[in-house]
């Protein structure tokens, strides 16, 4: 078994060379992950650009242009843009420029995490339980890291 895998170190990384049984099942996994990343990036870029156009058009809703990023934010003072996911969603539905940009950025941030979740499902479908475990460990560390970071706030 080890000999075979050594000669053909096939895996999820070998979409280019067809012919071996393990690679036929591998290629779609790469296509799915690649498509997920592409769609995530495209949709978030579209939202950022839409928000940017509305911001520059000065619809009166965009506040962030008036906040100079060269001046340090004042401790404890609320920013004029939403800082919760719910706030961003409500603002984006009302076509609020800052909220649209932030929704795009939140989607961008969520994309790599979604990628880990999708990889786990793909490893599960392949019956590759070692990698299901590896992926679950990464997800657990991400959640733990988030709560530790939030607690240190």
């Amino acid at each position: 078994m080890a000999e075979v895998t050594a000669k053909h170190p096939a895996g999820l990384s070998t979409a280019q060379t067809g012919g071996e049984s393990s690679q036929r099942s591998a290629a779609p996994a790469e296509q799915i992950v690649s498509a997920l990343l592409r769609y995530g990036v495209s949709i978030s870029l579209a939202l950022v650009l839409l928000g940017g156009v509305l911001l520059v058009a000065e619809t009166g809703l965009g506040e962030s242009l008036r906040v100079d990023p060269r001046v340090a934010p004042i401790e404890g003072m609320a920013q004029p843009w939403p800082t919760t996911i719910g706030g961003v969603l409500r603002g984006a539905l009302a076509l609020h420029p800052d909220a649209l940009i932030l929704l795009g950025l939140l989607l961008l941030i969520a994309t790599p995490v979604l990628r880990v979740v999708v990889s786990m499902v793909l490893f599960l479908a392949e019956g590759d339980y070692v990698y299901v475990g590896i992926t679950l460990f990464v997800l657990a560390m991400l959640v733990l890291g988030f709560f530790l970071g939030a607690a240190h706030g």
Binding site: V48, G51, G52, L55, G62, S64, L65, V67, P69, P73, A78, Q79, W81, T83, T84, P97, D98, I101, L102, G104, L105, L106, I109, A110, P112, V113, R115, V116, V138, L142, G145, F146, G149, A150, G153
Partner: peptide, 22 residues
């Protein structure tokens, strides 16, 4: 992946400036 957790924290602190980060 590693950056995602800290990015969310910066977002909640209001440090992601839309007109800059966009």
């Amino acid at each position: 992946v590693t950056a995602a957790a800290s990015a969310i924290i910066y977002f909640m602190r209001g440090q992601i400036h839309p007109a800059l980060a966009g």
